[in-house]
């Protein structure tokens, strides 16, 4: 015991205790971040840091500033709720530097089925197709304008009698063509179909209107040289025009 009547072992212990507590208080004063506890038990400046993250998706309003024509078309269409960047991808870069960054456009067949491919789990009534049989090989854009999608109505002028052909044709590359593009149909055929026949093309030039290498039809249509291709056969002797196969 010392003079104060405190047992001696208390003294070193008390000193250690005081040092530890003092070090703890000092550390708290020194190292706790400045803005900690300003609004709650967190670093208030963290909120600002999180808010300053870079924006990647610019938002459809931003697209409207330059592409107002497309925007307005889309606004009138079934895709009015589909944001531009839902298909074209994030475009904030494009808005900052329009020439350096160009957003992508999904032109193939892979993208649209993400929404429109048949899936029983989708809400009923939502327009869906079976990608395997729906005009295989053909880009969706050929028939559907994504900015103003309307269901392309395959011409059905002859389908009252030729339903089987119409069914095949409407999911083929030739879906949008009228029967009369290729067939000469006399008016009399509609009255007396057995006696007055609608003829198949009698020459190769009929197909050549679109498929000849010199034709001025849209680019994506496959081309051949009708002078040399297939020798003396008519086109439909090898190809089935109601369900043409590509590249074969």
């Amino acid at each position: 015991m010392n003079k104060l009547g405190i047992p001696g072992q208390i003294v070193p212990l008390a000193i250690i205790g005081v040092v530890v507590i003092a070090a703890f208080i000092a550390a708290r004063m020194l190292f706790v971040p400045d803005t900690f506890g300003e609004y709650g038990h967190y670093r208030a400046s963290a909120v600002e840091e999180i808010a300053s993250q870079e924006i990647v998706y610019a938002g459809h309003e931003a697209c409207n500033d330059c592409h107002d024509d497309i925007f307005e078309t889309k606004q009138e269409s079934k895709h009015r709720d589909v944001s531009c960047e839902a298909c074209h991808g994030p475009a904030a870069d494009h808005i900052e530097a329009p020439d350096e960054f160009t957003p992508t456009a999904p032109r193939g067949r892979g993208y649209c089925p993400l929404c429109h491919g048949y899936n029983p789990s989708r809400p009923s009534g939502f327009p869906q197709i079976l990608p395997k049989t729906h005009n295989p090989g053909k880009a969706c854009m050929t028939c559907h304008d994504p900015h103003s999608p309307v269901l392309p109505h395959a011409p059905e002028d002859c389908s009252a009698c030729h339903r089987d052909i119409a069914n095949v044709k409407q999911v083929s590359h030739h879906a949008t063509l009228s029967c009369r593009t290729c067939h000469d149909v006399p008016d009399e055929h509609l009255i007396q179909p057995k006696f007055v026949r609608a003829e198949k093309p009698a020459n190769r030039e009929r197909c050549g209107q679109c498929h000849d290498r010199d034709s001025d039809s849209p680019r994506e249509i496959p081309r051949i040289n009708i002078e040399t291709h297939g020798e003396r056969n008519l086109c439909w002797e090898c190809h089935y025009p109601h369900y043409p196969e590509v590249g074969k």
């Binding site: 550390a27 708290r28 190292f31 038990h41």
Partner: peptide, 9 residues
């Protein structure tokens, strides 16, 4: 880890 001492929740 020292944050557990500085700002214990």
């Amino acid at each position: 880890s020292f944050e557990m001492f500085l700002t214990p929740h």
